[in-house]
Simulated scan of single mutants.
Amino acid sequence: MKLLVSAFLCVLFFSCHETTKDTATDIVNDAIVEAGGTAFETSKVTFVFRDKLYQATRTGGLFKLEQQFVSEGDTIHNVLTNTKFTQFVNSKEQVLNDTLVSKYKNALNSVHYFSVLPYGLNAEAVNKVVIGEVEIKGDIYQKIKVTFNEIGGGDDFDDVFMYWFHKEKKTTDYLAYKYHTNGGGIRFREAKNVRRINTLLIADYNNYKPKTSDIDFYNIDRLFNSGELELLSEINLENVQVEIL
Rank of each mutant, 00 (worst) to 15 (best):
Y177R: 12
A176N: 03
I131C: 10
N198C: 03
F148H: 13
I186P: 08
N149Y: 02
K143M: 15
A176I: 06
Y205M: 14
I144P: 05
R187T: 14
N206P: 02
I136L: 13
A176H: 04
I140N: 05
N149W: 02
W164Y: 15
Y141I: 02
I140V: 05
E190P: 09
A203F: 00
G152E: 00
V160A: 01
D155Q: 13
N193G: 11
R195W: 02
N149I: 08
I202Q: 10
N182I: 03
G132I: 04
N198T: 11
E133L: 00
G184Q: 04
K145H: 07
F161S: 15
T172E: 02
E150A: 07
D173K: 08
Y163W: 07
G132M: 05
N193F: 09
N206M: 03
K169Q: 12
E190H: 12
V160Q: 07
Y205P: 13
G138A: 05
R195T: 11
M162R: 10
L200S: 07
E135W: 00
Y208I: 03
Y141Q: 03
T199Y: 00
K170Y: 04
Y174F: 15
Y163I: 15
N193W: 08
Y177A: 07
T147A: 09
Y163K: 00
G185R: 03
Y141R: 02
D173Y: 02
Y141T: 10
Y179G: 12
G185I: 05
L175Y: 14
L175K: 08
G184V: 08
A176M: 06
D156Y: 14
I197E: 06
H166T: 07
G152Q: 02
D155K: 12
D156T: 14
N182H: 13
K143A: 05
H166Q: 10
Y177M: 11
D159N: 13
T181R: 15
Y208G: 07
L200E: 01
V129I: 07
G154I: 05
Y205R: 12
E135N: 13
T199C: 00
P210A: 00
Q142I: 07
H180R: 07
W164D: 12
F188I: 06
R196A: 11
I151V: 09
T199V: 12
Y179S: 14
R187Y: 04
G185K: 04
G152F: 02
P210Y: 01
H180E: 12
V146L: 12
E135I: 11
F148C: 13
A176R: 04
K145N: 08
V134W: 02
A176S: 12
E133R: 03
D155F: 02
D173P: 13
E135D: 15
K192T: 15
G184M: 09
